[in-house]
Write a protein that binds this DNA or RNA. Structure first.
Lengths: 165, 165
DNA sequence: GGCTTGCTTGGAGTGCGCTCTAGGTCAGTA
DNA sequence: TACTGACCTAGAGCGCACTCCAAGCAAGCC
């Protein structure tokens, strides 16, 4: 089993970087499910489940039936992991993967799907930024209160209004 | 039932803005569950459920038993909605609410809880930003491909490598 | 009066995304 | 040879956050 260190996946494209030309898949390093779980942050259960539902093409096997993940598998996992992490439902990820399988004529459909997700990512960014401001404000208020009255001074009303929620 | 328009909630503090002094709660506008659902984006089911599990204090009732939400309720909902929207589990929201109920001696605990959530919000922001870059890159690539080959030109290999995942 | 609409309750049901179980195989080490 | 630990399968189970159901009540309108 190849060590984990040489797994190199292009972070921007989530495309694989082969150590050997991709016309020679035998020299592509192969990784056990445990290694991939550690590297990807997904559990081995989840990795097997992703394959079962079709998010991953059937992974190559050793002669004894164990999974051997290629760098291409890792690349797909890296991208799918990003989509998942940013809230894309598994069903939509599956749709994307099926478009990829269907070949070149789905370029525009894939693009549309990603554009749609990008909009949701932007919306989430906006929500998070807005909440961050609220959190900063409240945390600051609590910090002042701690400094001012570590043990019971009289309430001032304003404070109640601002922090009761 | 008061109309929805005059519901004014301070967006930064998520604290309520009373039309009348808060020593005169009778003049605080009251809102039906349907109005609150529309205004908050939560379903009426969810509003009742939040109250049932203790996220909201028992809401005032009309003589016939219908819920009448005060602006203070709306303010709490606004803040809780922000926490929820940014991924705080309901159980943790409940912990926060219980700290609020416990009074002044929980200022620092509340602060800690919010600081912890702020860290997660920041992590999510980072994840979303990173994914946004990947999406921009892939979408751009697909756009170029659409423009270049709207109907089957020969594949170039590089493209396969970059988009296969 | 009859109809519609919006509300009430307790409790059951749902969808998602894993997560685990049972029972077994296989690889590496002492 | 015995043991440990990582892996295999099909399928069941689980936690979360709602979401809905059934049966009933009340207000407003023609």
């Amino acid at each position: 089993m190849a060590t984990l260190a040489p797994i190199r996946v292009d972070l921007l494209t989530c495309g694989e970087v082969f150590d050997a030309p991709d016309t020679d898949p035998d020299r592509s390093p192969r990784h056990s499910i445990g290694e991939v779980a550690t590297a990807s942050g997904l559990s081995v259960h989840t990795l097997r489940w992703y394959e079962r539902i079709g998010l991953l093409d059937p992974v190559d096997r050793s002669y004894s039936g164990r999974r051997l993940y290629s760098d291409a598998d890792l690349a797909r996992l890296a991208f799918l992991g990003r989509l998942r992490l940013t809230g894309m439902p598994v069903a939509q990820m599956l749709r994307y993967v099926e478009l990829v399988r269907a070949g070149e004529q789905t370029f525009d459909a894939r693009r549309d799907l990603l554009v749609e997700h990008r909009e949701e990512v932007r919306q989430k960014l906006a929500d998070l930024h807005a909440t961050l401001a609220v959190l900063d404000y409240k945390i600051d208020l609590y910090s002042q209160l701690q400094a001012r009255s570590p043990a019971g001074s009289q309430p001032d009303g304003q404070t109640d209004r601002k922090l009761s929620a």
